[in-house]
């Protein structure tokens, strides 16, 4: 679990110009794992306060907590 969480954080930290990602983007990091497994890593990171959700109302994305231009706008 720790290894995969690390991989997710590295994926996010390596992205420039975009701070939020669809669930399917994370599934591509782990092509051999089922979606439900990937969800467990993301949920753990959310519960640790490292990731947060962002929603358009109809869709939902994940990003590093506090990151991104939207965040600066909202608070």
């Amino acid at each position: 679990m720790e290894e995969q969480k690390q991989a997710i954080m590295e994926f996010l930290e390596g992205k420039k110009g975009k701070s939020k990602f669809y669930f399917s983007d994370f599934c591509k990091i782990f092509p051999d794992l089922k979606q439900r497994e990937v969800k467990k890593f993301l949920t753990a990171l959310v519960n640790e306060g490292k990731l947060e959700f962002w929603s358009s109302g109809s869709t939902t994305m994940y990003g590093i907590k506090g990151a991104g231009k939207q965040n600066a706008e909202e608070d």
Binding site: V46, G49, E52, F53, W54, S55, T60, Q70, N71, E74
Partner: peptide, 14 residues
């Protein structure tokens, strides 16, 4: 984009 409460990805519309 605020979504909800801690740990939830839905239930609130910003």
């Amino acid at each position: 984009g605020i979504v909800g409460v801690f740990g939830y990805g839905g239930g609130v519309i910003g």
